[in-house]
Design a protein around this nucleic acid. Structure first.
Lengths: 375, 375
DNA sequence: GGGGCCTGAAGAAACGTTTCACCAGACTAT
DNA sequence: ATAGTCTGGTGAAACGTTTCTTCAGGCCCC
């Protein structure tokens, strides 16, 4: 029980470990400390309830563990406890594309905060259901207990079989309504950014839309109309153009610029920032200055685009980081995770985006003459 | 040995499984098939050498496994075999930022091809060494056998302790020279894109540099000078401007445009695409057209920037996908992985980028008059 | 007709934990 | 003095695999 021989023994063990290059196990620690593995386990996992280990013994075990450089084998622990602290993050192409990369980063941060590790599997665009299920099966064989299914952009997906009921869909809505989903509040974002235009005095506002991407496009349209309606403005189908969600898609703005003065819009709401980038180009090609001659707003607050346009673009920031963090909190059943978000009726949790005011909005030319009495 | 009772038994097991919601184990399969777990294991892992199991038995076991919906428990297997098919991908902020996202995607693809799963941990920018080592320790506790350390941009890093000797550094160079590193061949890329300018007839080429980012900046500079030298052109310090690697950094081009005619550059090589974006803006502000009045080239082929500028930018594509794939192949010791890449002297593997020709390069004005006899 | 070999398979240990059940001894209360 | 309680532990099973060793029985060969 004296320190001398024990130290000698620990040293011997250490030498032996280095010689055999075997990582020390709990048994080694127990032996070095002169206790049973039971005691060593109890001490090193810091269990207190129902077990009595005097401080002297505790310290002896801890010292031995440190001396030997003991690291627990999580595999063995997980096998025994039948739980793993891992989360499977499967996605279409979140990690492939720079769009929603903040979701993964925030999820990783939050997982680390809880001591969890993330298995990330990126299936690529349009992976067949069978491939998706195979990936989930592989994760299940690794005994991962929690699943997040992330999408690059907001859409509806068919949940692959094998996904447990408490899986969380991130940036997409699971069809069937049996799973929780976290998506941006598209409607609210569109409402706010369009309201920003209206409050600047605009009355004729175009919408460069991409209706091939429901539900985002439908919801942004709803927000657009809601803002219009709330301010007594009429929705004008002629100003609602369908286009593609790329820079070149914004070039269709030319058609609207060609309109006669009284029918021409003084502001444009673009489905996303890339379309807005194209709209800038179209405006400039016609000699229109942004925002003096034409106000333009976008959606997404896409990195390297929105803030780098000239002038910087007023847009709506997608709450990707908040969404990623919440997804982890939900799968881990963190209490209070939903305190900050509004109640959802349909199991779909909508996170508000944030209006980012930059320099692409100004009063319309002749605004003072156009102002309604109420403003 | 007849089918009848065995089928009944399998059915019973199935019912029991559903009732207890316990995942069937190898023992369940063995019992259902009327063999030992040894035999079941041999059959289901498809081992052939040294073991003899007649086809009839094989089929019986396989059938039982399928009937029960047996999935092996990888944790138990890994514990026994002392190997896991997992790779730890730790990075500063690869997953946080859209720069090098292709590396992770390609790594994931290649890992999946080998049946490996990726633990991804994103430490954030400038994580203290202690935090890095803690993350590596956590992965080691999960018994991950292979490590990749990825960086957002090409730089030199101090390898955190705990990383095994066969870890691969991706998009960064490990100081100390004890590890393998994979980086883009900056010199070659710069050489090629500058040569493109020279071959278009340019003789006065500016370099908008960012020397705060060695080694990339130094190597691109080397490539720049090599191209110059090879074509008998003199390096002119006055045309080498130091700036920041952002869009606004490109605005320093104004200073060069102000130069008197005979000293003004007819082309600009930008350290990266964002600087090029700023250079476009500066040129346009002075009424210069790209490429008619000024040729501009960049570096990176950054998504949503290079291809979306007006005109689209000639640049060098960073081989992120190739690098990510190779990293996996190296840690997995795939034979022939290095066949396609040139031998490296210093343990640093340099992967060639690809010149992407777009529309930002033209002959200089008055080029015919300036041409040297040789061209 | 007996030793050797081949076939087909099983028993049990091992991987590194956690945890259930139990226990020796000392002390306490009656 | 004895029964009960508390302290400080320990032994061994269990988690689900893989794999080493062993073995029964049948056949072949001489």
């Amino acid at each position: 029980m004296s320190g001398g021989p024990r130290e000698g023994r620990a040293l011997f063990q250490e030498v032996k470990r280095l010689a055999t290059t075997r990582r020390p196990t709990l048994k080694d620690v127990a032996q070095a400390a002169g206790v049973s593995t039971t005691t060593a386990s109890v001490v090193l996992t810091n269990r207190r309830e129902g077990v009595r280990v005097p401080d002297a013994t505790r310290h002896r075990v801890q010292q031995a563990a440190e001396d030997l450089g003991y690291r627990p084998n999580i595999l063995a622990r997980s096998l025994r406890t039948q739980t793993t602290r891992t989360i499977g993050f499967v996605s279409d192409e979140v990690t492939t594309t720079p769009f929603a990369v903040g979701m993964l980063a925030a999820a990783q941060d939050e997982a680390a905060r809880h001591g969890y590790l993330l298995f990330v599997v990126n299936l690529g665009p349009n992976a067949p259901l069978a491939l998706q299920e195979q990936a989930i099966d592989q994760l299940a064989q690794h005994q991962v207990g929690h699943f997040i299914y992330g999408c690059m952009y907001h859409r509806v997906v068919d949940p692959p079989a094998g996904l447990p009921a408490d899986a969380v869909f991130l940036n997409c809505e699971a069809s069937g309504g049996r799973h929780r989903s976290i998506v941006p509040d598209e409607r609210q974002g569109a409402y706010e950014v369009v309201k920003e235009l209206i409050e600047a005095g605009h009355r004729r506002i175009a919408f460069l839309d991409d209706h091939r991407h429901p539900p985002a496009s439908r919801l942004r349209f709803n927000g657009f109309r809601a803002a219009l309606a709330e301010h007594g403005l009429e929705y004008e189908p002629a100003l609602h153009l369908e286009t593609t969600p790329f820079v070149r898609g914004g070039l269709v703005l030319s058609d609207l610029i060609d309109l006669p003065d009284e029918r021409r819009p003084s502001a444009v709401f673009c489905y996303n920032d890339r379309i807005a980038m194209g709209a800038y180009r179209a405006a400039r090609a016609r000699g229109l200055r942004v925002p003096e001659d034409l106000s333009i707003v976008g959606f997404d607050d896409q990195e390297f685009i929105a803030s780098e346009l000239d002038p910087p673009l007023t847009t709506v920031r997608l709450p990707h980081r908040e969404m990623g963090r919440l997804a982890i909190q939900l799968v881990l059943d963190e209490p209070g995770a939903l305190d900050d978000v509004p109640e959802s009726e349909d199991g779909v949790i909508r996170i508000a985006g944030e209006l980012v005011r930059r320099d692409s909005v100004a009063e319309p030319r002749g605004a003072w003459g156009q102002r309604t009495p109420s403003s």
